[in-house]
Amino acid sequence: MTCASAFILRREDLVPLLEELAETLEVVAPVQVEGEAAFATWRGEALALDDKNPLTSPMEFFLPQKEVLFRYVQYSGRYTFSEDPPRARLIFGMRPCDLRALKVIDGIFGADLPDIPYAGRRRSTIIVALNCTTPGEGCFCRSMGSGPGAEGGYDILLTDLGRGYLVEPGSSAGVYILRAHHRHFEEADPGDIKEKERLLALAGDEIVTRGPSLNPEKIREAIDGVDWEEAGRRCLACGGCSLVCPVCHCFSVLDQGVPDGERLRCRDTCILSGFSRMTGGANPRAALGERLRHWYLDKFVYIPEKTGLFGCVGCGRCTRVCLGEVDRWSLFKEAAE
């Protein structure tokens, strides 16, 4: 293998490559579960790469819905603690929007005092990203500048060119993997890069024509114009919008077990009133409408202030899971008009 920066992986070589990788790493990839693609440990099943991006983002491998922070064991009044080491994992087929979400979270969980469990998982995970040439119906990554093509943040980037995958390393770990498995790759030619750009431009146009095209600046302005009380009336407080969002990261912590047990961390949602309520009953965000408003402000104002990136990557998942028909994007469109 030469020092070329792009390669071609033939379609028929994909599974053998993954099989080799799976010998040393846990390979996570989209597979079919009950009729839809979902990220799960790959055990040789057919890959569901042509489907739309799964409803549950692979961000769950960095910020799990539930994890053990540590175990405590009491012995004559004193405690000893134990933590699990992070697993060595390879996430295959992560899309540009989710990759951007990871970058946003890096700016929050990786910054100031880095969150140790997150940082550990981040370090032990290899990311093989997949450019989006088949965007889903609700996607608007282009408006948010997070897709359909990935810009950095991956170890290896794939683009489906039809005859095979264009493979571009993005980190030394990526280069190392390509070297170690070089027999599956052949050098790409400049035409392949052009083809990738053509496909991504096509996908981008597709998103703009069929999906909501929103300018984040407009959304920011629109937040003040939305009737949040009315939106709150329709919200069924399912919390789905936060739980499904790859950028949402709030969590709660609880202990289970006396005298020995576990301190658990679980995903939380600011949509629930108990999230901000204090023991005495006072609640700084008592109404559902206020909580919805905060959700948006965080994504479009506060997170950008902190990380320089929007707290929304345009994956469209929150609209998909909403029980109350709080169609957030049309909400903005109306307000913006």
Partner: peptide, 13 residues
């Protein structure tokens, strides 16, 4: 997480 193809949940819970 919700099953996206399920006739009732359709990706919601």
């Amino acid at each position: 997480s919700p099953s996206p193809a399920h006739p009732v949940s359709r990706g919601r819970l």
